[in-house]
Each structure stands twice: as structure tokens, then as C-alpha cells.
Design a protein around this nucleic acid. Structure first.
Lengths: 107, 107
DNA sequence: ATAATATGTAGGTATTTACCTGCATGTCAA
DNA sequence: TTGACATGCAGGTAAATACCTACATATTAT
């Protein structure tokens, strides 16, 4: 599993919009997704390629069409590896901050 | 709150490492953080600037030093806005995928 | 077979980004 | 004050990125 690909993929607003679109209606074709974006098809293809590479989207061919499906597994990993880790220390960190400021500033 | 700044900030391995470093020991100075990265101080400053801009890190001056503190709030927002949303639909999506494939392929 | 449709592939360009060097400023301690 | 130390700021460069145009291929329906 590749942290970097996941975060890089999520780091672009167009790609996040694509995920949103697939969340609203799963299995959309390339052309269908293009209809919601103000951008050439080739650019959308490139974005979907990164999402696929990050394993956030799975693709299935049906005839001449490409169906795109959402894969939420990497997001779950992001949660485990990042969100939860920091959340656990949230209160402790706030306490540390308070202590640090009270003890060290010359204000 | 700015989705884009948060995700962009998380989209770089150096910045994620900085967050990790602050998670291990909160309130580190610029120089201290530099000690863990193979990179010039000025570049680290730039990365910390983006993290600060994304509100993921708060900075407090103490004399000639800059102390850096982690702020997990935006990560919590990422969880609410992104992870949970997709997770909720996870099983439903898998079911859709199965149905779609069974019903539509000519295999 | 032919035309329409859906997507693939091969580049080209302008912007953004992630580094860097060099020098300036501000703070502390003797 | 003076030297050492911590950081600020102003650029410069090479690589990555996000678009694009143009053309090729594959599938479907007539």
C-alpha cells in the first residue's frame, strides 16, 4: 500500500470531485464523468489514471466503455495510519501546548 | 476551512514526515526539525509554511526560536468530510459492483 | 462495410513546486 | 558591544504537473 500515491491522488480538486461524482453514482463511464467537468476528456483520463494507480478507483471495461468504481479501502488506511494516530494524541497535545506556553514565554 | 490546502499539504512526503516528527515530540524548533531531514533549512521552512497555512501546524515564537505544534483539527475534518462518507457506502458499493458486473458483461 | 461513438496514445506548453544559494535580521550571552 | 546562533527573505533552477491538440484504435448499429 502506497501512502504517497494515495495522498498525491487526493491532493487535486478535480480528482476529489471525481471521487465525489462516483460516490453519488458508482460505475460511471469516462464520457459520463467528463460531462460534469469543464475539461477535455484526455485530462480526465489522466486524473482517473492517477486515481486508479492509487487504487482509489477500479475500472471495468464493458464493450467500448470504461466503467469506474470507487474503492474506499485506501481511504480507510489513511484513517488508520493518519487521522486516528493524531486524534489519539489530540488532548494530550493541547495540554502540552498549554504547559509549554505557560512555562516558557516571557509575556 | 480549506479542503484543498489540507490535502495539498498532506500530498508531500516531507510534510507528512514533519507531522510525524511533531507527533513524536510536539513543540520542536525549526532547527530541531531540520536535524531529522536531509534538506536545507530554507526548504523545511517552506514546507512548514504550507503546513501552517493549512492550519495543520501552529507556530509560537520563543525568543529567537520558532516552536511548532501540531493541530489535528483539519485532519478530523478530512475524516468527517471524506473518509466517513465513503466508508458508509462501502458495502453498498461492493454490492452494486457485483450486480453491475453480473448483469452487464457479455462474458 | 460504413458511420457514429467511446476510448487510447503521443506528444507539446505553461504553471506550479521543491529544492537550492546568498544575504539580512533579530536574539542571546559574555 | 560583539560574536554566535536561530530564523527571515529574495531570488534562481530543474522537475513535476495539469492542461491542451491531433491522431489512432476499437466497438456498436445500420
Amino acid at each position: 500500500m502506497d501512502d504517497d500515491k494515495t495522498f498525491k491522488a487526493l491532493g487535486d480538486p478535480t480528482r476529489r470531485k471525481l471521487l465525489d461524482l462516483l460516490c453519488e453514482k458508482n460505475g460511471q463511464t469516462l464520457g459520463e464523468l467528463c460531462g460534469h467537468l469543464d475539461m477535455r476528456r484526455q485530462s480526465v483520463t489522466q486524473h482517473l489514471g492517477l486515481l486508479e494507480d492509487a487504487n482509489l478507483v477500479s475500472v471495468v471495461r464493458r464493450g467500448r466503455e470504461r466503467l469506474h468504481f470507487l474503492n474506499p479501502v485506501p481511504l480507510q488506511m489513511v484513517y488508520e495510519r493518519w487521522i486516528r494516530k493524531f486524534e489519539q494524541q489530540r488532548l494530550a497535545l493541547l495540554h502540552e501546548l498549554k504547559t509549554e506556553l505557560e512555562g516558557e514565554t516571557d509575556d
